[in-house]
Write a protein that binds this DNA or RNA. Structure first.
Lengths: 115, 115
DNA sequence: ATCGTTTATCGCCGATGGACGATGACCGAA
DNA sequence: TTCGGTCATCGTCCATCGGCGATAAACGAT
C-alpha cells in the first residue's frame, strides 16, 4: 500500500538518503498543527459539500481567518479546492490525509526499529 | 478566543465521536512540525545514548538551538530526559511517539469514514 | 440596474518561533 | 587548583503566524 521507504530488519541506512524526508513531513504536519485546522478538517469530512461560510458558522472565527486556514490546508495539499460559481467548495483530500498519516507512521516505525 | 473550538475535559457530549481532541493533537504535531526536530528524533532513535553535543555535531546548528529543540521535544513528551553528570542523555519515548502516530491515524480514519 | 451574499485578499498588529552569541554552572582531567 | 568540555538559559534579532476589520470582486436575485 505504502511505499517501502523504511528498511526492514537491516540496520544499515544510507547516510544522505533518509528514510523519511524531514522537511516534507514537517511541512505537512505544520499544516495540521493548529486546532482550528483540525476542526475544519473534521467538519469538511463530516459534510459532503462545504463552502467557507459553512465553516465560519461552525467555528467562532472571522470569515477572513477561516479563509486563511482553508488556504493553508489547500496549499498543504490536504484539502481540494473547487471554485463553484459563488461558493467555493472545499473537500478533504482523503488520500493525501492518509498519506500524511502513513508518513508519520513510517517515521515512528523507523524510530522504533532503528536500534 | 478559541474556547468554543474545544471544550477541554468536557465529557458532556461526543458520545460516539472517537474523541479526537483537536488541541491536544495539534500541540503534539506542532512539536513534530520542524525538520530539525524530525532529524533529532531520527538521530536519537539511531543511537542508544545521545547527548546534546552529539546532536550538535550531526546537525549544522548552534548548540543553543539544538538545546532548544530538545527542550521542545521533551516538553511535548516525545523525548525523555535523563540528566547524567555532565552530559544529558536524551532518548526517544517510543510509546509516546507511537501514540501521536495513532492519534493522527485516528483522526484520519474518522475523517475518511466520518460521513 | 441595485441589493445581498459569499469569498479572497489586503493591511495592520500582537504573539510566537527560530536562530544566534554570550554567559555561567557543572564536571572530569591534568 | 586550573583548564577544557558540555549544557541550559538568557537576551536579542528577525521572520512568520494568527487574529481581525475593511475592501473589492463575483454572482444570484430582485
Amino acid at each position: 500500500m505504502t511505499e517501502s521507504l523504511v528498511e526492514a530488519g537491516g540496520s544499515c541506512h544510507a547516510p544522505e538518503s533518509p528514510a523519511v524526508d524531514s522537511r516534507a513531513i514537517a511541512t505537512r504536519l505544520a499544516a495540521l498543527s493548529h486546532p482550528a485546522r483540525i476542526e475544519i478538517l473534521k467538519h469538511l469530512s463530516a459534510s459532503n459539500s462545504c463552502c467557507c461560510r459553512e465553516v465560519v458558522d461552525r467555528l467562532d472565527l472571522a470569515q477572513s481567518t477561516v479563509s486563511q486556514h482553508l488556504k493553508i490546508l489547500v496549499e498543504a495539499g490536504l484539502v481540494r479546492f473547487e471554485p463553484d460559481r459563488q461558493r467555493s467548495r472545499y473537500a478533504v483530500d482523503r488520500v493525501a490525509l492518509a498519506d500524511v498519516s502513513s508518513s508519520l507512521s513510517a517515521l515512528v516505525t523507523s524510530c522504533c526499529s532503528g536500534r
